[in-house]
């Protein structure tokens, strides 16, 4: 055990002491090896703080902002598009503007967001073959599989096989479109509204919208599921 101070409880200081004889009372944690990249994170962060480039508070605030964004954001957008044809048209026309109207801060890193609509004829899937670009403003951080070499490699040339791994089977005549994201352009899939949801409220509808259906590897949850 060599790295109590930074990884177990997120202290920014390394010079605190413990009462004599008292060990760290922390639970076992897998996050306990100070590898080279982890040392690099500590070193770079401390150096940037010392040089006055950024502050520990800014790092904390960025983590809070990160934690505040989740697929619930995207689900709200999708549910609104399902109930409000005008909003849907606006979303497909200019997703940044439409999402800003719903109260999302879309200004992070000045990215263009494009919403692509699933229909019985066309199914859309999103990937970033070159790295991991993802509509974080609406969905939060990407899942590990989205960043995986296997997903990035395969989804562009065998999307149906990849969909099958996610338990998704499409009719043979559905066109599958795979959208490759870039540093400046992100995609959000607008999934099809499930059947038998006519009487549902926007909030109930949002609960049917999963992260995976907004990436396009699955359909929205069915009503009553």
């Amino acid at each position: 055990m060599s790295d109590h101070h930074d990884h177990h409880h997120g202290h920014d200081h390394h010079d605190h002491s413990h009462p004599p004889g008292q060990k760290h009372p922390f639970q076992a944690d897998v996050d306990d090896t100070l590898t080279y990249p982890r040392r690099m994170e500590i070193a770079l962060r401390e150096l940037l703080i010392e040089k006055g480039i950024l502050t520990a508070d800014e790092i904390r605030a960025a983590i809070e902002d990160m934690d505040s964004r989740s697929p619930a954001g995207g689900a709200k957008v999708v549910a609104r598009a399902w109930v409000d044809p005008e909003f849907k048209a606006a979303l497909l026309e200019d997703a940044n503007a439409a999402c800003t109207r719903l109260g999302f801060d879309m200004s992070i890193r000045e990215l263009k967001l494009v919403a692509v609509e699933n229909t019985p004829e066309v199914h859309n899937i999103v990937v970033c073959t070159l790295c991991s670009c993802y509509p974080r403003a609406l969905l939060g951080l990407p899942p590990a599989w989205y960043k995986s070499f296997a997903y990035r490699s395969r989804v562009v040339n065998e999307p149906r096989a990849v969909l099958a791994e996610f338990g998704t089977t499409l009719p043979d005549n559905t066109v599958v479109r795979v959208h490759d994201s870039t540093a400046d352009l992100r995609y959000l899939v607008l999934p099809m509204r499930p059947a038998n949801t006519e009487g549902m409220s926007e909030e109930q509808l949002a609960a049917l919208v999963t992260r995976d259906c907004m990436i396009g590897v699955s359909a929205a949850r069915s009503a009553g599921a």
């Binding site: 990884h7 897998v30 996050d31 994170e41 790092i59 990160m66 599989w145």
Partner: peptide, 20 residues
């Protein structure tokens, strides 16, 4: 594709925060 969910460790979040 390994579809296991991976909760980010705190240091991994700090990397993202530094970039942000």
């Amino acid at each position: 594709i390994d579809r296991h969910e991976h909760e980010l460790q705190h240091w991994e979040k700090r990397v993202e925060a530094l970039i942000a």
